[in-house]
């Protein structure tokens, strides 16, 4: 590359813009977390200052842990997310394998049918989904959420995974067939391990909207036993509007698990996006 594109002012300018935007992106998150560790007077007196030994206070966290049943909500979210993820990946990979591996009549039609759901949001079917869940007695169960999220995640999973499965070498699969492996063994023992990186990408893409969803928990499972952490946080925040310590602490508690997971998986996620899987 020519040196003309890398003059010093240009580089400084680029850093200035990116740094400014980074500050804009992180500022609200940081200010919430920082203030959650301060006493009420300090939250209002000096909102931009970090907590000092004098203003440090955990009253917000003790309120949240004493009041809301967050551990339970957290478990619900975890069960729903993990189970939906498992079914999306398993069913999605199986369907993707069938579509990419075998030639049968109606193959591309089936692919198109499954791809419909990428563009049309499942939320528009809510009225009938609720009726279906009422009829089958699944309202206020985690099963209802798992079913809905599995259906929601499948279209994109099938689409991305079948792109990757096309790249698995035919020779390998045929060698397996000659050795007398069944089609199921070929799928589970040969193909699945090879597409594991793309499974991770799909997993991340599927997980974030499920964990963060408010609509379906609100409509299908609002009972105390089945509340997810997102819904629980929403209701808790609504109740404690005037208790700023508790609100800031609850927000921080909701942010931190996601943030920690993100820091661990961010390379995977960003590689997934930039590898062109979703283009």
């Amino acid at each position: 590359m020519s040196t003309a594109t890398h003059s010093l002012p240009r580089t400084i300018g680029a850093h200035a813009v990116l740094l400014t935007y980074t500050v804009i992106a992180l500022f609200p998150v940081i200010i919430v977390i920082v203030n959650s560790f301060k006493s009420r007077a300090a939250i209002f007196g000096a909102p931009l200052a970090p907590p000092t030994p004098k203003t440090f206070d955990l009253i917000g966290y003790t309120t949240v842990i004493g009041q809301g049943d967050f551990i339970h909500y957290f478990q619900n979210s975890l069960v729903v997310t993990v189970a939906s993820l498992f079914f999306v990946l398993l069913f999605g990979a199986m369907a993707a394998f069938a579509l990419s591996e075998y030639r049968f009549r109606g193959n591309s039609l089936m692919g198109l049918y499954l791809a419909l759901g990428i563009m049309i949001p499942i939320r528009l079917g809510t009225v009938a989904i609720l009726q279906l869940m009422v009829a089958s007695g699944l309202v206020n169960t985690l099963t209802a959420l798992i079913l809905v999220y599995t259906a929601q995640g499948l279209p994109l999973a099938v689409f991305i995974l079948s792109e990757f499965m096309k790249q698995v070498s035919d020779d390998l699969k045929n060698a397996g067939r000659i050795d007398g492996l069944s089609e199921y063994t070929i799928f589970f023992r040969l193909v699945l391990p090879l597409v594991r990186p793309s499974m991770a990408t799909v997993a991340v893409f599927t997980m974030i909207p499920i964990w963060n969803d408010l609509w379906f928990p609100l409509i299908l499972a609002p009972s105390e036993e089945t509340k997810t952490v997102t819904l629980g946080a929403q209701l808790f925040l609504g109740q404690f509007v005037t208790n700023w310590n508790a609100i800031l602490a609850a927000l921080s508690l909701a942010i931190m698990p996601v943030l920690i997971l993100y820091v661990i998986f961010s390379r995977q996620l960003i590689r997934g996006i930039t590898s062109g899987a979703v283009k």
Partner: peptide
Amino acid sequence: IMILPLAG
């Protein structure tokens, strides 16, 4: 869970 409820 998706297509039939949408149609419904």
